[in-house]
């Protein structure tokens, strides 16, 4: 059984008041996510990521197509018991405390009073909310609200968690905490489906990704399998490189950037590989600092993709 499956899922929004015309926010999305996977749903802002998540939560009804979670149609109350959802920049009730909010949601899931207390307290510890838990939510910062949002999403030990931009609004420390949280969910066997516009988040966490632009799926699979993200070349950083040897081997490099005195970043083409050049340079007295494969960045990829789209 698949954790998430969508078939030709499409959503039109009417645009314009007087004579509304449909604007296609999502176009025939077909997607399959296995149980236990951590799946990155990538795309620039406005690509249709949030629309897809809302369709999966049945906050929106599709114009056409189908969506299933854990083998049941979305919106099924039994399914909702087994999933969690973090909306984009979540917002809750001003006058409840973090504790009360989670307790309220826990009561909707159906936990008894003692169980509620235990879970809420453990969850707040897990997302790193300390004494602030007795504070009304209107006094919370965006980052704190994000943590409360994550806590409510994993309140019921869900089998599938949907996170819409879980890293946004967080400082570097917060991002790392969320990253660790997602990893620990994965270790528990939980399927995580999260959206992001930052490739690095996906690279660090995901087994597979899907890339969405202008409502269309343009690539999916393992990051390394996606043609766009295959190794494009090498970045070699060396020190103690003499001017003569740089001149001698210049033709074998795509681009040279001086970083410091006799220290350079060298871009090399994919073929014939860095081995030969590296051996020669070291033989001429240079020291190796680092060697990395280079890939196209998600941003480059988006820009390139959007450029290819026919104007609408």
């Amino acid at each position: 059984m698949l954790a998430i499956q969508t078939t030709d899922l499409s959503k039109d929004f009417p645009v314009g008041f007087w004579r509304p015309r449909p604007y296609r926010a999502l176009d025939k999305l077909t997607l399959e996510v296995e149980q236990g996977e951590t799946f990155g749903f990538l795309g620039p802002n406005g690509a249709g990521k949030t629309t897809t998540l809302k369709l999966l939560m049945q906050l929106l009804y599709p114009t056409s197509g189908r969506a299933e979670i854990l083998g049941r149609p979305v919106g099924d109350v039994g399914v909702k018991r087994r999933i969690g959802y973090l909306p984009e920049s979540p917002y809750f009730y001003d006058y409840l405390t973090a504790e009360e909010l989670l307790s309220y949601f826990a009561s909707l899931v159906g936990y008894g009073a003692a169980e509620r207390r235990r879970r809420v307290s453990a969850l707040l510890d897990e997302v790193g909310i300390g004494s602030e838990r007795r504070l009304q939510l209107r006094k919370f910062s965006k980052g704190m609200l994000q943590r409360v949002g994550i806590a409510q999403a994993i309140l019921n030990d869900p089998e599938v968690v949907f996170l819409d931009e879980p890293m946004s609004g967080l400082d570097p420390l917060g991002r790392r905490e969320v990253r660790n949280l997602i990893l620990s969910l994965r270790d528990r066997g939980c399927t995580v489906f999260f959206s992001s516009h930052v490739l690095a988040d996906a690279e660090a966490l995901c087994s597979r990704v899907a890339i969405l632009a202008s409502g269309r799926l343009i690539a999916s699979g393992k990051i390394t399998d996606i043609h766009a993200f295959q190794v494009r070349g090498w970045e070699l950083i060396v020190a103690h490189l003499s001017g003569e040897s740089l001149e001698r081997h210049r033709a074998r490099m795509r681009k040279v950037t001086a970083i410091a005195d006799r220290q350079y970043a060298l871009e090399l083409p994919l073929e014939p590989g860095p081995d030969g050049l590296l051996r020669d340079l070291i033989g001429e007295g240079a020291h190796l600092v680092s060697l990395n494969p280079t890939r196209e960045s998600l941003e480059d990829f988006f820009i390139q993709q959007v450029g290819q789209q026919e104007p609408r």
Binding site: M57, L86, P87, L108, G110, A153
Partner: peptide, 14 residues
């Protein structure tokens, strides 16, 4: 308006 309904409706309620 404040979108608090998003997380609420993802809970097992009708």
């Amino acid at each position: 308006e404040r979108r608090s309904i998003y997380s609420l409706l993802s809970k097992p309620i009708r």
